[in-house]
Design a protein around this nucleic acid. Structure first.
Lengths: 155, 155
DNA sequence: GTAGGTCTACTCGGATAAGACTTGTCCGAGTCGACTAGG
DNA sequence: CCTAGTCGACTCGGACAAGTCTTATCCGAGTAGACCTAC
């Protein structure tokens, strides 16, 4: 069970974009330089966030990415699932219905306790990530952080 | 973020072994036939559980696997981490210290809020799986299940 | 001085290869049970 | 009939390939701004 490396990238990039002023944008190249990341691949991930409706992209000179809505309305879970997909890590393939010990379908009307337990754990994980928004992350940074970030990123 | 397919296999196999009487064993071939799984690969996964101290293996005729301790002392998490490893899905590589925007190490004494949030979600997931033991799973099965399982598995 | 047109340069977007990991398979070492022969 | 020895077959254990997904890269389509020219 592993999240893509790019998860860390987009989380940091989203937190960085959240420090910009409204209507300001940052290009994929600027963000890549800011964190020393491979620019083309980072751009691909930012596209995924755009498709998910978390970022908004503008083309042309002075274009780039910006948050599509307020930081307090963007949860960690939304960002993670935008790059990794929303599929649950445990996929029940109903092997209890296969082989010599196979159960009949009507014996399996209730979901198997194993799958239910795994699903509950996934729900707990999602709930934990839903409880934290980008705004919560920003609140933990030093007060001077946005100014520094904007200067280095745009400068 | 995906768990190996074999996770479902070993969970069901562990639940099956928990229905045997003490000192009874089931071989990898018997379990594979019971669920119609590729026997050699299933054996590989059961080995992992043996290394983790969850199962106990005996060789020779009439040998096979059995639980290494009581079902109530085996948690779902222990089984899952035996096959998938205990590594957290989100790995913080401290990219905030790289690139133009890199922070100095002494600015990073506190763990980054993003990594901490992801770690807390992982903790919630683990706690949810620790709360359920194999005995809890067995308690949800019909009362006649162990008899049927033993007859089909061994017979 | 101002407005329109064109042109350039910069942006994102999707389609295309290489590497890593999961999945799947095989054969060898060890051990318990059964058979046989002797007492 | 009982017991010791030997044989055989079944078990797990680790080492070895193929498929699939993540990672990484490239080039093309589109657009906003800047420049130049005409009025």
């Amino acid at each position: 069970m592993k999240l893509p490396t790019s998860t860390e990238w987009v989380l940091h990039c989203a937190a960085t974009l959240a420090q910009l002023r409204p209507a300001e944008t940052a290009s994929a190249a600027q963000l890549a330089a800011y964190y020393d990341l491979p620019a083309p691949y980072l751009a691909k991930q930012l596209q995924a966030l755009t498709r998910a409706g978390i970022l908004s992209a503008t083309t042309g000179p002075r274009g780039g990415f910006r948050l599509a809505r307020a930081a307090k309305d963007i949860t960690m879970l939304q960002i993670v699932e935008a790059v990794d997909g929303a599929a649950a890590p445990y996929e029940c393939r109903e092997i209890r219905q296969q082989g010599r010990g196979g159960l009949t379908p009507d014996e399996c009307q209730e979901t198997c306790p194993l799958a239910r337990t795994m699903a509950e754990a996934h729900t707990a994980w999602r709930a934990s990530l839903t409880a934290v928004s980008l705004a919560d992350i920003l609140a933990e940074l030093p007060s001077g952080a946005p100014t520094r970030t904007r200067r280095i990123l745009m400068g």
